[in-house]
Amino acid sequence: MSEIKVLVVDDESDFVELFIKRFTRRGFSVLGAGGGAEALTLLKGVAVDVVVLDVKMPGMDGLETLKEIKKRHPTVQVILLTGHGSVKSGIEGMSYGAYDYVLKPFSLDDLVERIQSAYHRRALVGGGSGA
């Protein structure tokens, strides 16, 4: 299996750095972005399998970013991550095509598994970072 390419998007740079460190150690190839607009620019140039996206961000928020990602890259899988989960944002997120909705704090092993099954789905729908 080739390396799973993950993009983590969060406005807290400490979180992004830590995430990259921890998940790179787990064998993923991880990129970081500090906001929705930056994430979309990155996605134009780099093939990514799974985006881990914070819901609450200043400027373009997680749901807006999700909509744009799904419009431009329908096979890329998005896992929404949130510290302030709300039922409303959960319903919206799922209906806009998010793969999963995970509450912070998360356990590393748990999120690793979720990223792997999101990647599995990406492979099933005919996408793949090789493309």
């Binding site: 999700l66 419009k71 329908p74 806009y96 099933l124 729908v125 005919g126």
Partner: peptide
């Protein structure tokens, strides 16, 4: 047909 229809946002 999953790929074509799925979550087109």
């Amino acid at each position: 047909h999953g790929a074509a229809d799925q979550g087109t946002g």
